[in-house]
Amino acid sequence: MDNSRQLIQYILSGLANGAIYALIGFGFAIIHNSTSIINFAQGEFVMLGGMLTVFFLVFLQAPLLAAISLAIVITTLIGIIFERLAFRPLKNAKPISLVIITIGASILIRGLAMLIWGKDTHALPAFSGDEPIYIAGATIMPQHLWIFAITIVIIILNKSFFSYSIVGKAMRACAYNSQAASLVGIDVKTMVLFSFVISSAIGSLAGIIIAPLTMTAYDVGIMLGLKGFCAVIIGGMSSGLGTVLGGLLLGLLESLGAGYISASYKDAIAFIILLLILFFRPQGLFAAKETERV
């Protein structure tokens, strides 16, 4: 009885963390698919989401919903500025230079966050209370339900945006072949900008909904970013179901590994998976031969 209760607990915690990893992974995938680079500043968007919400909520006493919206808007603006200043002027640079620029940008954003908000960890109140809910002997927080709900909504929105809207289709076209896309009259530059808008918005949202559970600080972006990167690698750089499954799988393995092997190896588990996937299935776990991107 107790064993199954433990197992359920591990699975629930794992899925909740996994959902966050998947959301962060989306950000990586969307930018990768429009620019074919890995944006290592993605984790900083996650951090900015959480920290800005704390800032508006605690220091400016704004109501929760307003604080969250403001945080997403500002993070998105930062995403746009980032694209404008660091990407567009260097359109013809090698991918490796651009990747290094994203690393530089992430250090810059982190440094600025540290100067502005200090080095302290900050807590964000849960959206709807701190009373645990019991499920088959295991417990789950209302915040976990928020995470699941928001993740599902984002997945659906994401899918319908890329499948049905004209902009989404255009972005997909750029992902397949940007030269051909520009030939048929798609403004590739604008699509790149859009991809930054979407991924910084999703990233900040992920940072906001996780903050009440794990708290936030200027340096949370590194680890969360790497976990999201892991998820998207498992998912084969897709911004669809692959990354969702990748994130959930990562969360589950982490939580089960922490529970049944040792909590000290929690982060190691994620990175061992990352290495194994890169060695043996660089196209991702769920992809057929040709990765279905976007």
Partner: peptide, 20 residues
């Protein structure tokens, strides 16, 4: 006797064991 890493943000795994 459980441990956690200085940067860990989720100790439910260790505490679940203790709960049992």
């Amino acid at each position: 006797d459980e441990t956690y890493g200085p940067q860990d943000k989720d100790m439910t795994a260790q505490l679940t064991k203790i709960r049992g």
